[in-house]
């Protein structure tokens, strides 16, 4: 009987420990994911054998911030894919929530077609991937670099320093990739992204975590 109690307590501790899992910090190895792309196929980062790394951008259809960055994301992908860093866009929103009704899988397909996305646009079904990265809004960006040890987080935060494209002074993502290509570490490695809160009914997934 006592043993059962101990087991139960251990289980409770293990579960609560899991839900309090903190988001990746710079330098951490990140887990690969397997998410459905707009072409109906499942995609993982390890599928891209020749890539040096990836720019993961949590973004969506409805958010005006995301929309303001679409053309910049397309241009970045075009400029850096041939250098080994491709964009992977991921929609983290729950489309069953009224505010995110424009972010359904079907409307993602439509949006990608309309804007002629040349990069994957994945659906974080079940909302399991974005909490691991600690993404809280759209757009929220993360750069992972392939290393001997695995996929390493090297940058997280904003795409650049101004939502108004004409006023941009610091192109954080482009500068970070340039640094990586030159064998250096991105500086800054952490910035703060601004945008629409990720639409999720489970608020524990959106807790602002350390870092």
């Amino acid at each position: 009987m006592k043993n059962t109690y101990f087991l139960l307590i251990a289980l409770v501790i293990a579960i609560s420990g899991m839900s309090a899992q903190s988001a990746y910090e710079i330098g951490d190895l990140v887990e690969d994911f397997k998410l459905k792309n707009i072409d109906g196929k499942m995609m993982s980062m390890t599928d891209a054998k020749n890539a040096k790394g990836f720019v993961l951008i949590f973004t969506c259809n409805h958010c005006p911030f995301s929309i303001a960055y679409e053309d910049r994301i397309i241009a970045l992908d075009k400029a850096y894919k041939k250098k080994g860093y491709q964009v992977i866009a991921i929609n983290p929103n729950d489309p069953s929530i009224e505010a995110a009704k424009d972010d359904s899988y079907e409307l993602m397909q439509q949006r990608a077609k309309d804007k002629k996305f040349k990069f994957p646009y994945l659906f974080d079904e079940g909302q399991l991937v974005f909490p691991k990265f600690g993404a809280t809004k759209t757009p929220d960006c993360f750069i992972v670099q392939k290393s001997a040890a695995g996929l390493k987080l090297v940058y997280k935060g904003a795409f650049d320093d101004n939502k108004e494209e004409k006023e941009v002074k610091q192109k954080y993502i482009a500068n970070a990739i340039d640094a990586l290509l030159a064998g250096k570490s991105p500086e800054p490695a952490v910035t703060k992204a601004f945008g629409c809160g990720i639409k999720c009914n489970d608020k524990t997934k959106l807790q602002t975590k350390k870092g």
């Binding site: 809004k137 101004n162 939502k163 601004f194």
Partner: peptide
């Protein structure tokens, strides 16, 4: 005006993740 938002967001609050 959100110019250079990264330089001032933490002046409003260090904990601000950037969502409204």
């Amino acid at each position: 005006d959100q110019k250079d938002v990264n330089s001032w967001m933490s002046k409003i609050d260090k904990k601000w993740s950037g969502a409204i």
